[in-house]
Design a protein around this nucleic acid. Structure first.
Length: 277
DNA sequence: GGGCAGGTCTAAG
DNA sequence: CTTAGACCTGCC
């Protein structure tokens, strides 16, 4: 008996945008247009209809303890969007980007996996990032109970990654990022960095803590803070955002004036520049 | 074959 | 303090 949970689809909630806007690498669209993948050790299938979302493979307990938070169902996106519009009433570019990315929602993903995923993302492309995260999980993660065909493996813990060592990491073709991942694993496994504890720090200190890991600069740290810690004041600047800022905001774009929404604005601008046409 | 991809490190001015 | 190069790997 497969359990499932449904809830009313919020106004700004579109699986295609949520899983295609580059924040997550573990969910893939099936032929039936649902999204299958794994998070927090649970393999699930998200199904979208006009008025409701169904999570196949989840029960009420998981919904309360995992998926509500993962999907950021506690966040009022209409309110966030209104706040953005009132902060930048004359910004037509942003208005278009918000329309284009209307269904985007920032997930709250697993901290350790997000950290590794974005270390891997540097100087890399999205299909390869996906396949590397998948390969590491398949090789060293735990197989999740699955409701359907296909295997889903959790991303291995920091302890596990520290234990397997750099030679085994190299075999996975992670390339020059091997020492970075190893350093992250060592620091997290030893307790030198406590990923949960640093979640209590103000954002600038959280970023500093993350950047003490070799191979983690401001961009990767900002992505982790935004996609795993839900820090909406973070504004990761990658090549695409840099490009869109130079193109439309030659006089500069002060994201610090958007303390509650900067990260969402970043996603709208990124998605607009990256996926339009 | 050379260029490129959700960056960062290092060495050099 | 700012800035080129280099960097694994795979796909074009």
């Amino acid at each position: 008996m497969i359990s499932s949970v449904s809830f009313n689809r919020p106004k700004h909630f579109d699986l295609d945008l949520i899983f295609d806007c580059g924040q997550s690498f573990r969910f893939v669209k099936s032929s039936d247009c649902s999204y299958s993948g794994i998070a927090y050790g649970k393999a699930v299938d998200f199904i979208q209809e006009d008025d409701k979302i169904t999570i196949v493979g989840a029960d009420e307990c998981d919904f309360e303890s995992i998926w509500k938070s993962y999907l950021a169902l506690d966040i009022d996106y209409s309110a966030l969007r209104n706040e953005i519009l009132s902060s930048r009433p004359d910004d037509e570019v942003l208005k278009n980007a918000m329309e284009f990315g209307s269904g985007i929602r920032l997930l709250r993903q697993e901290k350790w996996e997000t950290l590794c995923s974005f270390i891997i993302s540097q100087n890399n492309n999205i299909p390869r990032i996906r396949s590397l995260v998948e390969a590491i999980s398949r090789e060293y993660g735990d197989k999740a109970e699955s409701y359907s065909v296909g295997d889903f493996y959790s991303f291995p813990s920091a302890e596990k990654v520290a234990e397997i060592g750099i030679d085994k990491l190299r075999e996975l073709k992670v390339g020059f990022r091997v020492p970075y991942i190893h350093d992250a694993a060592t620091k997290v496994a030893s307790g030198e960095i406590d990923l949960d504890a640093i979640g209590k720090l103000p954002t600038d200190e959280l970023l500093t803590a993350l950047m003490s890991i070799k191979g983690v600069g401001l961009k990767v740290a900002s992505c982790v803070a935004l996609f795993a810690y839900g820090r909406l004041d973070c504004f990761p600047i990658d090549v695409w955002v840099k490009r869109v800022l130079e193109k439309y905001y030659p006089d500069g774009f002060d994201h610090t004036a958007l303390p509650n929404t900067a990260g969402l604005v970043q996603q709208y601008l990124f998605y607009y520049e990256r996926f339009r046409q």
